[in-house]
């Protein structure tokens, strides 16, 4: 794999915008680029890709673990985003959040269907897939925004954080999370929700 950078090539970095905005393109610019994409502007979509692909690919890689699968997930997700760009509504959330929702869903579908197809033991599968933690850590370390997010994550209780990470990065359902943590389903559900609410409030996201 190539050397990891926090910011895509050649992108200017005019300060760190707040919320979910990428480090090099403001949330408003990204929303505008996506709206131009919906009118068939492929150049605008290329800019959307450049501003978001390290987040999309990093997230897909973390969930599916296998770099080739992560590439497929990302490719499908961007194609979907292009097709449905007309339906993106800035009033309902950031463009980056919208895109990452698509990426995450594809990644989760991918790990679940791969397991269903191979009947492979989930734990074995996930523990033996190669992940380069060092490169991921290096990229994350370089981002100021990442430090802000880490600070917000640290406000979660240990059990909230565990449940959120198993669900979001592990791709497990809340019922599976409950079994893995040996807690009632309702408890897992609550930990995930309370953890996300705390993360949201610490980051000052949404209403």
């Amino acid at each position: 794999m190539d050397h990891i950078r926090a910011v895509p090539d050649g992108a200017p970095s005019p300060g760190a915008p707040s919320g979910a905005a990428p480090a090099d393109t403001t949330a408003g610019e990204l929303a505008t680029l996506l709206q131009r994409s919906s009118r068939g502007d492929e150049g605008a979509f290329a800019q959307v890709y450049d501003a978001t692909s390290s987040r999309a690919y990093g997230l897909a890689l973390r969930v599916v673990r296998n770099p080739a699968h992560a590439e497929e997930v990302v490719q499908e997700a961007y194609l979907d985003a292009w097709r449905s760009s007309t339906r993106y509504d800035p009033a309902r959330g950031s463009a980056l959040g919208w895109l990452l929702t698509i990426v995450h869903r594809k990644a989760v579908d991918r790990v679940r269907s791969a397991e269903a197809a191979t009947q492979r033991d989930a734990t074995y599968h996930r523990e033996t897939q190669p992940v380069d933690h060092d490169q991921t850590a290096e990229a994350a370390h370089a981002s100021l925004e990442a430090q802000r997010v880490r600070g917000a994550v640290s406000t979660l209780t240990a059990v909230q954080r565990e449940a959120v990470e198993l669900a979001f990065f592990g791709g497990y359902t809340h019922t599976e999370v409950a079994t893995m943590l040996d807690v009632p389903v309702g408890t897992a559900k609550t930990r995930i929700r309370d953890g996300l609410i705390r993360l949201r409030d610490a980051m000052g996201v949404g209403s």
Partner: peptide, 11 residues
Amino acid sequence: GLLSETTLATP
């Protein structure tokens, strides 16, 4: 979505 800030990787 913000959690993706902690898993950046260049494709």
